[in-house]
Amino acid sequence: MIKVLLVDDHAVVRMGLSVLLNNVPEMEVVGEASEGNEGIEKALETKPDVVLMDLSMPHGKDGLSATSELKKQLPDTSILILTMHDDEEYLFRAIQAGASGCVLKSAPHQELIEAIKSVCKGNAYLHPAATKRLMDEYLDNIKQDGSDRYQLLSDREKEVLTLIAKGYSNKEIGEKLVISVKTVESHKSNLMEKLQMKTRPELVSYALKKGLLGYGM
Rank of each mutant, 00 (worst) to 15 (best):
M217R: 09
E159R: 15
T183K: 06
Q144F: 09
M135V: 02
K194S: 03
N190R: 06
E172I: 02
E157L: 01
Y206M: 08
L139K: 06
S169V: 10
K182F: 01
L212N: 01
M197T: 07
R200V: 01
L126T: 00
V204R: 00
Y215S: 13
L134G: 03
L195F: 09
D140L: 03
R156A: 13
L191A: 00
K176S: 07
I142G: 09
Q144L: 08
S189E: 12
Y206V: 05
V160A: 10
R156P: 11
R149Q: 13
K171R: 14
S147C: 11
L161W: 10
S154Q: 14
K132P: 04
R156E: 15
K132R: 08
G211Q: 15
A207Q: 02
A130D: 05
E193D: 08
Y138N: 07
Q151F: 10
K158W: 10
G216R: 13
L152Y: 15
E172G: 10
L203E: 02
I179R: 05
L213C: 12
T183C: 08
A129H: 11
I179W: 07
K198G: 10
K194R: 03
G167Y: 14
S147P: 07
T199D: 04
M192W: 09
L213D: 12
Y168C: 13
K209P: 00
Q144E: 14
K171P: 04
L203T: 01
E185A: 04
I142K: 09
N170I: 06
T162I: 10
M192Y: 10
M135G: 00
L177T: 00
T199R: 08
T162N: 15
S189D: 14
D155Y: 14
E157D: 08
D145V: 13
R200D: 01
K210I: 06
V181T: 13
K194M: 04
L195Q: 08
G211P: 07
N170D: 15
A165V: 06
R133M: 11
L134D: 01
K210N: 09
H127P: 02
L152H: 14
E159C: 15
D155R: 13
I164P: 10
T183S: 11
L208M: 09
V184S: 04
K143L: 14
E193Y: 00
N170K: 11
P128C: 08
V184Q: 05
P128N: 12
L203K: 05
L208P: 00
L203Q: 08
D145Q: 15
G167Q: 14
K143C: 10
G174N: 02
L208I: 08
N170M: 13
H187D: 03
P128E: 11
N123T: 07
M192D: 07
L152M: 15
Y206P: 01
A130H: 00
A130V: 00
L153H: 11
L195D: 05
V181E: 05
A130K: 00
T131F: 00
L208W: 05
D148V: 14
L212M: 11
E202H: 01
T199G: 03
E193A: 05
A129V: 11
E175K: 11
G211L: 15
